[in-house]
Amino acid sequence: MSSRLSSASPASLRDDLQAQIHLMQGKRGSERSLPVLPSLSRLLPGGLRPGAAYSIQGSMSLAMALLAGPSRDGSWCGVAGLPDFGVEAAAGFGIALDRLVLVPDPGTSWTPVIAAMADVLSVVLARAPERVAPAEAARLGARLRERSAVLLVLGPWPQSEAVLQVNGYEWSGLGEGHGHLTRQELELEVALRGSSRRASVDLADSGPVGLSRHRMGA
């Protein structure tokens, strides 16, 4: 990644420039984004960007699916403020339970706890607090960028990189008095960097992650 050794090809020049910009913004230049499951790679083409916050509205499964990508890749994950987190479903998405830490009740010290978790864990999933001051959110955002951690917030969050809003669920397998739930499809609206688009995602389709495809870099 050294600029002095780079050839003159436009692609490598762009990479170098990006690295330098990142360095000046206080980020490590060699940092790469965290992978996401294949079913979500259309929504977040670059994966999860370290230092960013993502807002997820209306679905715990979607939050678990987002956690699963980095967890399968060997990252440590944390879950805060969600006493109802379904551990078996998480294991079903491929989250490694031995690298998962729960803080079911952060109490009144929401921001310090999330910041302390983000210090040591790569991805932190948290329920949004009842209200958060913009200045506090900005401080937490700076902490996240410094530690290159990803914050997934279940609920609204003021400074999020992307907002994944679930508008509807589609279930199959259940009839009237017979059958059982087999597949879930989510109707999503994704607002990513100013552009908004709709998509439908089948969460059951989360096979083994092809890591190389998803670590392209932001």
């Binding site: 339970l97 031995d98 864990l121």
Partner: peptide, 27 residues
């Protein structure tokens, strides 16, 4: 290495919230 850091960080949260506040799940 990383595990040491994680342990220190989580112990800090434990000293803020109590021993039972930071848990590891299992089935």
């Amino acid at each position: 290495g990383a595990e040491e850091q994680i342990h220190h960080g989580l112990s800090r949260i434990q000293s803020m919230l109590g021993h039972e506040a930071v848990v590891v799940p299992a089935i």
